[in-house]
């Protein structure tokens, strides 16, 4: 049986990963960022402790939503760091590496786990959400293929 707390544990590990990576790339991020992410990871630990203490009080529906919210925050941070590197710091190569090595795997694994959890619990996600996700993936794939086939296009877009 898949517990919703798995999302909290996964999210906490994501924050730890962000903390270590932002420490390694310290010249590109504000100095406090790695420590902020450590605190965010400890908050995930707090999530798990609260779930454990109030396991019999909180029903699974409630636990699922607050763990999913924490996962969404973690994923938003992963994407935000990616965008920060690409847009604010203009580190395109680093942003691309980050996208393929961090953003894509974490988002993919998270979506897979959430859907697997919903499937095991017999819950149905709205079809609209699934359609939007497929559309998003197709758009990202299209942009990636375009950039891959003609790298100069990206330069042209940047110059405006």
């Amino acid at each position: 049986m898949l517990l919703p707390e798995l999302f909290a544990m996964l999210s906490s590990d994501m924050f730890l990963l962000l903390s270590l990576l932002t420490c390694l790339l310290e010249d590109r991020f504000p100095k406090a960022v790695p420590y902020v992410y450590q605190i965010a990871a400890i908050m995930g630990f707090g999530h798990l402790v609260v779930s454990r203490i109030f396991l019999t009080v909180f029903d699974e529906y409630m636990r699922f939503w607050y763990n999913l919210f924490y996962l969404a925050v973690a994923l938003a941070n992963v994407v935000a760091v990616n965008l920060y590197l690409a847009v604010s710091k203009k580190r395109w190569t680093l942003a691309k590496v980050w996208s393929s090595a961090v953003t894509f795997p974490t988002v993919f694994i998270s979506i897979m786990l959430v859907y697997n959890y919903a499937y095991l619990q017999g819950a149905a996600f709205p079809t609209l959400m699934l359609n939007l996700l497929v559309a998003l993936v197709v758009v990202i794939l299209g942009i990636s293929l375009t950039v891959f086939l003609s790298p100069k296009l990206l330069e042209k877009v940047r110059r405006g």
Binding site: S12, F45, R52
Partner: peptide, 10 residues
């Protein structure tokens, strides 16, 4: 430390 504590609680 945090990851180990998380895993233990989970």
């Amino acid at each position: 430390l945090v990851a180990t504590a998380n895993a233990a609680i989970f």
